[in-house]
Amino acid sequence: MSLDLNEQYSKIYRYCYIRVNNRDTAEDLTQETFLRYLEHPKYHSIDKTLNLLYTIAGNLCTDYFRSHKSDELPEDMQSNENIENAVLESYALSQALKSLPSEDREIILLRYINDVPVGVIADIYHISRFALNRRIRKILAELRSFMGKEEL
């Protein structure tokens, strides 16, 4: 894998965290992702490598949800609601992010936090690039409208 292992680990971790909302679980799933990556054939293309990593991570998260169905709110979510430790602006943004569907949140994370290419994201979610771009624009517009600002 030609990508930086340290950087990719963080990105996959963030993706798993936003899916499961638990740090330990996210780390376990992240490590499992990289271990399973070793069993697969290696690609020379970065996009294919990223696609493989995120596909493995997403499948692991889905399997985790199926095996661990719980109505309890994650601990991290409760800590996010701590108004004293949060900045009003970031709190508003975080609230705006929470109002989004989970898949939209993942897309925003992958696109703007993990800097995953649009083509890879489109392959992960099985949509076209054009549809993905429209969806991203829509998500950003919703965030802005939720925050009442023209920009984030």
Partner: peptide, 14 residues
């Protein structure tokens, strides 16, 4: 700001 808004904790065993 987005990254901060997500408020994702850092991994421990990285």
């Amino acid at each position: 700001k987005l990254k901060e808004a997500f408020n994702i904790p850092e991994p421990v065993h990285k």
